[in-house]
Design a protein around this nucleic acid. Sequence first.
DNA 1: GTAGGATCTGACACCGATGTCAGATTCAAC
DNA 2: GTTGAATCTGACATCGGTGTCAGATCCTAC
Lengths: 118, 118
Amino acid sequence: MKIGELSRRTGVSVRSLRYYEQKHMLASERTAGGHREYPEAAVDRVVLIQHLLAAGLCGDKIASLLPCMRDHDGGPAEMATPWLVEQLKAERHRIDCSIQDLYYTREVLDEVIATAAG
Amino acid sequence: MKIGELSRRTGVSVRSLRYYEQKHMLASERTAGGHREYPEAAVDRVVLIQHLLAAGLCGDKIASLLPCMRDHDGGPAEMATPWLVEQLKAERHRIDCSIQDLYYTREVLDEVIATAAG
DNA sequence: GTAGGATCTGACACCGATGTCAGATTCAAC
DNA sequence: GTTGAATCTGACATCGGTGTCAGATCCTAC
């Protein structure tokens, strides 16, 4: 499919899709004229990228992580290097901290909301 | 205390403390010569601000939220306006979504880490 | 009084994801 | 063929929190 359709189907702007490609998170074939052509699987891929970005992973990490994931075909295309595994463990720890922080902040918000209501 | 000590005790840079003040998240008295002077309670306040910032609330929201919180003295200094309550509920929802996203992403990371280890 | 460390203000830079605009080119439908 | 919509590239802007630098001023210990 073309980039416009991918944008429509994922809710991600055309601009962002091009950015993902620039950062090597998303690949595309090219038409004779230079237009991007995506396979069906690109939809899931883009959704996944959005999740990872929302979780605070930067583009570079995502780019190196993606080939190490199991995809629909089964095994991963690449094995994570020890260096990458360390990075991912650090990210995992950061995420744990974020989760704790979010729970705490949600309680703070709840208290203020409750106080205003009561 | 002076800004340097507050920085040391909270681990927040002097630059950031001044920024918090500029955004009305943090108040200070001034010496005759213009130097900032903080009460003891500023330490907790700064820690709280860090939590809220880490949770993705922007400075303006935090500034309007803080006076509506219960402090050590008991009741809040101000009541949250209906508008603010709506904002906070929206933030709460955003936080819920973030938590879900983080759990999902953590699973993804775990899977890659496990695959690399196994 | 004086020296040196701390603080002041104001300005500019940075990051990363995204928006937006301009001008050129391609694609699809008639 | 032609035309209008879609896409291309490249550049610049934005946001918020923070880093950093310069030059001036203050505070404290001697």
